[in-house]
Design a protein around this nucleic acid. Structure first.
Lengths: 225, 225
DNA sequence: AGACGCTTGTGACCGCGTGCACAAGCGCGG
DNA sequence: CCGCGCTTGTGCACGCGGTCACAAGCGTCT
């Protein structure tokens, strides 16, 4: 696995596995905060996040020492700390590329905006779709992508196109200056080293499940490359 | 990480990380087969699947020795072997639970049926939705779930409900005999040990991306718990 | 003030997964 | 029939991640 140079002054480099769990803790913390509870133990958080308590403590210790021995963690402080770390205090304008079934669902999905990711543009290559309204946005042509990204400060591109357009769209996004991409298309997409890329493939998930069913084994939660 | 008893006679237990990559190889192999190419090297497969060649060889070696030194892998044979291993030669009837935006998109998504996962039921708790047609299926009430699972041999349940209904729906699925669940709801779902569970959380993915943007680091492909 | 209970933070160990590098082996050409 | 080139299959070493178990430390009660 490629290690990166320690070009960040930050002393404590948070492990990738921990980063992947921070959103779980964040969700759990919001639940707790909702109940007006002001202190949680690693045990309780572990329960809510569906992980092991020791892991919770070690993960949180990478953020700094925000717990009190004998007491637990201050919920408000931890929420602030985790959301700061996850970058949720900033604004991350999102563009959705490709408005087939999946793209439309994502455009309407509350889970995005709910957590502070604002969808600011819907883009599709099909002229027949351009101009159509979805939610409270209008579908725009791909040619305008660069201008859209510039003007609306698009930070994250979500690819929901068919597999064979995915790479082309990714290239356009990168050319327009987008440095973070979430790919839903069932295709391998290659981006330059400075661009972050994550992928979600629905068919892959089902295939992993069927593998384990077939073999009488049990699939564990995680996903993987 | 929980190890399971070796209750399968199969000598070679395929590592979880390899299982997660088999769908990638499968997709790559289909691409190659489409071009009427009958032999591929691990190098080529690696390129198409977006992984390292050594990893491809090691992964494929878990399935058995289906390559020829100096030549490569026979595409047809490998396609057969991988699909057999993934259980794609069987029928895996899928039920979708919850028909909001996401559920409807999944119901219409071609990526599912394309790879042999047949959607056989759409279920929603909202009486207002029951009876409505989506694609060529009709939304049915949750009360009928057990009967539906029995009659249509549902093997995989896809949860696309709001977070607060996810656990209840999962419990019903398990009670009805479903042993594999794919959860799209942003909630922790607990199931008995004999049930496979994987999760996909869209908001989590975005949060991971924003973390890396925030820190000037680069997110790698994988996902994780 | 001192002791006790509870919870954090972390040192240590262990196992999986990764990548390198090479030996084994197949096929072709001379 | 022998040698050469190419590609697989794998032994090995290393590092990340997970878990245990315990010391450190806070608060409370007597």
């Amino acid at each position: 696995m490629g290690r990166e140079e320690p070009d960040i002054p930050e002393a404590r480099l948070i492990p990738e596995a921990t980063v992947a769990r921070l959103p779980l803790y964040y969700r759990a913390l919001l639940q707790v905060a909702d109940q007006a509870i002001d202190t949680v133990s690693s045990e309780q958080l572990a329960e809510l996040a569906g992980v092991n308590a020791a892991k919770v403590r070690k993960d949180l210790s990478y953020l700094g020492s925000y717990g009190t021995r004998g007491v637990g963690y201050d919920v408000d402080q931890l929420v602030r700390e985790v959301s700061r770390e996850l970058g949720l205090t900033r604004d991350w304008p999102v563009a959705i590329l490709g408005l087939g079934n999946l793209g439309r669902a994502l455009a309407n999905y509350r889970g995005f905006s709910a957590r502070g990711f604002r969808i600011v543009a819907l883009v599709d290559a099909d002229p027949a779709k351009v101009g159509e309204r979805v939610g409270d946005l209008t579908i725009e042509p791909v040619d305008g992508l660069r201008a859209i990204v510039d003007e609306r400060r698009v930070a994250i591109g979500v690819i929901a196109t068919p597999a064979d357009s995915a790479q082309a769209v990714a290239d356009r996004l990168v050319a327009a200056g987008v440095r973070a991409i979430l790919n839903f298309a069932p295709a391998v997409v290659v981006v330059p080293p400075e661009v972050s890329l994550r992928k979600v493939d629905l068919a892959t998930e089902l295939q992993i499940l069927s593998f384990y069913q077939q073999h009488g084994r049990r699939a564990r939660d995680g996903a993987g490359v």
